[in-house]
């Protein structure tokens, strides 16, 4: 079995983010990056399949500049077998559909039995790429997956629904699942894994190598900014009844209900 895992390298959760000079993105120089947290759960889910079946091949795929190599090496250190790095200036930072097109081209070349992605990314938060990718390569998909169980011809998944409900879905292979955080306990890269990672192959490609063109973003970001701080918060005090009564008054006053 072959499992393809899509990874995105995003700014580290502890990185101090500043807006760039033209106000359209963050300054990426001199900040630390890491694998998108959702994607680490997707990788772990794939590695568990490999733990159970040593014949499984786990291929990690990422789009981005040279720095993405480190994220891929980390994934290889955790146990993935090989990596595909799409190092293409147009594809990097493109909109969800173009990113999905590039990943679809990789998926067509790799013909995986399963594709795992994170539910969303820590930076973009769109959740759009996984279902778009599934649609482009015409495979069934499930989002918000908390548990997977791979059988011979299918993948049974448990999806998280609103209100804590769980939906159980069985997808015929090949298929795609976008994994929710908390689906598993993500392993640490071992010392042995990291040292062996340098011997594992990373296949570097451009969009053209994959036969995809016109991958530049169709969406443009007009402005990125931090929400302005203001001092308009009202802190309600008193007993619980007084606070609830005060809150109800405020809601009525604002006319939001």
């Amino acid at each position: 079995m072959k499992v393809m895992v899509c990874l995105k390298q995003v700014p580290h959760q502890d990185a101090k983010l500043d807006i760039n000079s033209d106000g359209t993105w963050i300054q990426e120089d001199n900040i630390k990056f890491e694998i998108n947290s959702y994607d680490t759960y997707a990788l772990e889910e794939a590695l568990r399949i490999k733990d159970a079946d040593a014949d499984t091949e786990v291929v990690v795929v990422s789009i981005g500049p040279d720095r993405v190599t480190q994220a891929l090496r980390t994934a290889l250190g955790m146990g993935a077998d090989r990596a595909v790095h799409v190092n293409d200036a147009e594809a990097f930072g493109s909109d969800a559909l173009c990113v999905a097109k590039v990943l679809a081209a990789v998926a067509k070349a790799e013909s995986p039995d399963l594709i795992f992605t994170g539910l969303m990314t820590d930076d973009g938060n769109s959740s759009a790429v996984p279902p778009m990718l599934a649609e482009l390569i015409d495979v069934p998909s499930a989002t918000g997956v908390l548990h997977t169980e791979a059988a011979n011809g299918s993948l049974k998944v448990e999806r998280e629904l609103e209100g804590g409900a769980i939906e159980v879905v069985e997808l015929p292979k090949p298929c795609l699942a976008s994994i929710q955080t908390g689906a598993n306990q993500v392993r640490y890269a071992s010392l042995k894994g990291i040292m062996q990672a340098k011997k594992k192959p990373i296949d570097v490609k451009t969009a053209a190598d994959l036969g995809v063109s016109d991958v530049a973003s169709k969406a443009t970001i007009d402005k990125v900014y931090s929400p302005p701080k203001n001092a308009t918060a009202d802190i309600l005090s008193g007993s619980t009844d007084e606070i609830v009564s005060g809150l109800m008054g405020k809601i009525k006053e604002l006319g939001v209900l």
């Binding site: 890491e34 190599t69 480190q70 250190g77 640490y188 890269a189 010392l191 990291i194 340098k198």
Partner: peptide
């Protein structure tokens, strides 16, 4: 080196989360 950075990051995560 890149490898040392990876080892350091992995151990840092382990130290913060498990130690």
């Amino acid at each position: 080196t890149e490898e040392q950075e990876m080892v350091r990051d992995a151990m840092r995560d382990f130290a913060e989360q498990a130690v």
